[in-house]
Design a protein around this nucleic acid. Structure first.
Lengths: 342, 342
DNA sequence: TTGAAAGCGCTAACAT
DNA sequence: ATGTTAGCGCTTTCAA
């Protein structure tokens, strides 16, 4: 009775039920209760039942902050995306999240907003949470962010791109190949005056370069390239087609850096009575869910976004659980889906 | 020299730089280093500088798991959305996330996938992380989830709906009012045979009911209601319009439960040579970014999604920091934006 | 203004 | 199979 185990302490704490409470109620040591929840097979059926009953009765929900701190495994995965609204990446995030959740991991979402400054801050915030893995949309070439990530030792998977020197794991495809193949595709269908409408992000830039190079290599005149800046809206697609036609009225094919821009171009073409694909062929990028069912259905470059998410989740989980990843770099490729606009 | 401070312990720990390391390097106590990072004004300029230097030199990133555990403030906010792909909620999530990030909070994203079972599991996983606040898309009527949330004591904001008995805070609008006003809007423009195309979610159901009731009340024949199930694709919008016309060839106005369904209906109408708005008026819901610039531009119900996110973040942060929220329930309303399809 | 001590709630390590 | 002990890395409390 003079022992201190019933002593008031209580100047801190959230007041929530703890593992201690559960263990006390079940009449076992805290570690036994802990084992019931993490490796039930290592506890006798009787004790297991007692603990589970206590959990039920108290409505106990384990504090993963504490668990993560003690075990150095947060079961948190962080994902960085440039943007979430109408973004081609969300399919990837959705499957990433679903796969992670089923394996007992939680997703933290960060938006870099296409800004390097913000990305820097974001990475610091992320590392502070000690996630078991980090998912990056795109790749991270040199810079402070890359250094920090490397130093953190946290498993990283870069995606939606390819690079000879990934930080760690990589699941993507070649933007250069896409640009080249789209050019060949259009040329193969008799197009000769190629145009491009694109947002000014780095990946779209690489697609554009390869596209232009392939055109030149085929002996065509230089492509007409319209940069819409940061905006990826349907509206800027419309405006861009207008600008494109002004610069080069003879253009007979346009590669757009996103489906939304392509729909904008398509809309503008229709508004001007330009027939697609007869006078102008239009091809998008991303194959967002609804472009297949429009009239005319959009020809576009399909990326298996959900697949990227699933693979990335698998890799990250493997690494988090100490398993080796046999194929740390995967090229998931792409497909040009021909529909009615080419 | 016989003190234990230099004793090897090292059987645990992640090996990362800790506050201890920084403090040692700066020649101060850990708590002083801690203060530099949380309340710098309480530390002398000299010590402050020494600590900041040490942070720089070591590349120290505070472990927020440990901080959260010690302070009972995780600076984590959890958000539950039904889906992320092409979803009208993403604008809300984006502004929620941005506002939270600027205030030093991190967002955890959970997908309920429109399934109550999954939602249940998700809530348990979320509560386990001890977030400082929870953002819910939609409202949570009775059920285990609601009970658990209430029991957790975590601040909750429900959104995108209204209810007389919110769990805690609420930022939304009335789906019933929308249904009624859309009906009145169409009737006011001379439409008499109203149709509805909708996904089978509960909120769309309430809009549909009010819409139907308003039609009946105005002395119109019963509306024709097409349920597309769980699918919200453009394709199902097309199929739905087909079904609608089969059931009721005379229909002269269609209210769709999402913009994507509306675009589907629009597409099908065009494919069949039905002129919009002359023969059929079409109105959507959500006002996703690009429907304003299509041809024809879609008439739709606009919700200030970004506003909901910002307000919700503000409320959650206020509550997390112990401030009172003077307007825990906010009706952000809606606007019918008339464009070219009505 | 600074620091020592004592935890936050959990789990790894080492017994038994 | 179960328990004891000692932390994880930080912050609160209390004292100087």
């Amino acid at each position: 009775m003079t022992t201190k185990e019933t002593t008031r302490r209580s100047r801190r704490g959230s007041g929530a039920i703890t593992l201690r409470d559960v263990a006390k109620l079940a009449g076992v040591a805290p570690i036994t209760a802990s084992r019931v929840l993490t490796s039930p097979e290592r506890v006798s059926p009787e004790n297991r039942q007692k603990v589970l009953d206590a959990v039920q009765r108290t409505g106990y929900v384990p504090n993963r902050l504490a668990g993560g701190l003690a075990s150095a495994r947060s079961r948190l995965i962080a994902a960085v995306v440039p943007s979430t609204v109408m973004s081609v990446f969300m399919e990837t995030i959705e499957s990433l999240n679903a796969t992670l959740f089923d394996a007992g991991y939680q997703l933290m979402l960060g938006q870099s907003g296409y800004s390097p400054v913000r990305e820097e801050l974001l990475l610091e915030a992320i590392i502070g949470r000690r996630p078991d893995g980090i998912f990056l949309t795109g790749i991270l070439q040199q810079g402070k962010g890359r250094t920090r990530l490397l130093a953190s030792g946290i498993p990283v998977v870069e995606t939606w791109d390819l690079t000879p020197n990934p930080i760690d794991m990589l699941i993507g495809f070649s933007h250069q190949d896409i640009g080249r193949e789209v050019a060949r595709f259009l040329i193969g269908r008799g197009r000769r005056k190629l145009g491009m409408i694109r947002a000014n992000d780095e990946r779209a830039g690489r697609r554009a370069h390869a596209y232009a190079a392939a055109a030149t290599q085929a002996g065509l005149p230089p492509i007409t390239d319209i940069d819409v800046g940061a905006s990826r809206s349907l509206k800027s697609g419309r405006e861009a087609l207008r600008a494109l036609l002004e610069q080069n009225p003879e253009v007979d094919a346009v590669f757009c850096s996103s489906d939304l821009l392509a729909i904008g171009a398509l809309t503008e073409a229709r508004a001007r009575g330009i027939s697609v694909p007869e006078q102008i062929a239009i091809i998008g990028f991303g194959d967002v869910p609804f472009v297949a069912d429009m009239v005319p259905a959009l020809t576009t470059v399909h990326i298996k976004g959900a697949n990227i998410g699933r693979l990335a989740a698998g890799h990250l989980i493997d690494r988090a659980e100490g398993r080796d990843v046999d194929q740390p770099v995967i090229d998931v490729g792409f497909t040009i889906i021909e529909r009615e606009t080419t």
